[in-house]
Design a protein around this nucleic acid. Sequence first.
DNA 1: GGTCATCATATTGTATGATGACTATCACGC
DNA 2: GCGTGATAGTCATCATACAATATGATGACC
Lengths: 249, 249
Amino acid sequence: MSRSTDKLSLRPLSPPRNLTREAVDRLASEITSGKLQPGARLPTEQEMMSAMGVSRTVVREAVAALRAEGLIVTRQGVGAFVAAGVLRRPFRIDPEGLRSLAEVLNVMELRLGVEVESAGLAAERASPAQQRAIGDALKAIDRAIERNESAIDEDYALHMTIAEATGNGHFVRFLEYLGRYIIPRQSIRVESGRVSGQRAYLEKIQGEHRAIVSAIRSRDPAAARDAMRRHLTSGRERYRKLAAVEVQA
Amino acid sequence: MSRSTDKLSLRPLSPPRNLTREAVDRLASEITSGKLQPGARLPTEQEMMSAMGVSRTVVREAVAALRAEGLIVTRQGVGAFVAAGVLRRPFRIDPEGLRSLAEVLNVMELRLGVEVESAGLAAERASPAQQRAIGDALKAIDRAIERNESAIDEDYALHMTIAEATGNGHFVRFLEYLGRYIIPRQSIRVESGRVSGQRAYLEKIQGEHRAIVSAIRSRDPAAARDAMRRHLTSGRERYRKLAAVEVQA
DNA sequence: GGTCATCATATTGTATGATGACTATCACGC
DNA sequence: GCGTGATAGTCATCATACAATATGATGACC
């Protein structure tokens, strides 16, 4: 830590230029830019080799990568073709972009939209068993607070149980996908914060949780949505303040 | 067409089992099953070769595919490792699953959550230029209706402009991803429906659009959210009825 | 004239060996 | 202890060869 290189900032240098990676990018851009229409045939491996000046290994690995991403399909003895469903590429959030506070907040906004609807649908549809699961998840957070734990996992579990109560698997999967981006960061604050304040903070959050669950119990979608919106909005504010403190520290 | 092969049910044979594909599946299952924890090191290429009895070409292509999917990362001179963000795999909706009406409705629900929030944020944040773009998109739909067109593209464009007005790129990208799943189907109805009813139907939808845009213009997030919710909810109902008719036909 | 077997050719799939580049590790000298 | 250099392990790339498959042309057969 005492090294003087900290302030030198002679980093990124060059991103380790990797031929395969380069080839993948080039081909991908040809496709996504529309130069190669869906169904169109790609150049043969030989042509790509000479065109890009690389060996067949590189070309084949690039093709394998694009095939894995679903961008192209290959047929032995025939050639490689742009996949018909290019437009249906997976939705993904670049983890690298999450370095900045703004990006994290952006993801939280997306999550908010999904979770608000999730709470509303849960209020409409939750089965008795699901209602029970939600109640159990709520109690689990209580117990974790009692044990003076951060209750991160239990918190995530509650949101997940609510998503499951929508009966719509997409909500669960989307939250599984997004949740991981958001939750871990929150642990930073709890761990680094003063322990005395943590308890009060968790109690406040738990109050918001109770409002959500209560609305779901009474089958009031509008109230459930409002409660979830308040919960996530204040959570976003908490995160924003925390991050601001961290930056200046 | 008069051939009797129609009833023979000669299945498309077996999906051409190629070694690379097989290797990818095997490795991927090792990872997603948790046998290989994030950060764990994979066997060396040589070990995988002898373990699976394939050539290095196959191993390397499999590794390239997994790297493209973000499941593993390779470091030259060191080895291949399970990516730290395995849990953060891309969110994707299996197009095959969309055959059933229920699945399409499920996707529409997810979209509703995102778009409702999108409208709310647009009402809060839309810049003058973005407000203008939204107004233009609305007028474009009017003109399309005037021309007796289905206005599918213009409809999609309006939703997109609203998403852009959130200033949050994730909303745009998410809608780009989801939109394609939903919109195309709607065209079926319009095209197959009686033309006389189409006009009235489009006017009704356009009324909903106007309510959304008006709320965004007056910077009323709650009203914008409500209007968008009504629009998409009734859209969902329309689709449900239509699909029910189609099935029995 | 139409159908089918056969062949030539093009292309992707797989195998193998060699070489270069990068990294971690450890012995060595200071 | 700390930097230095040698060394071995590993992935990255290249080159070549052969196998498997698809396509179109050609010709035999009825």
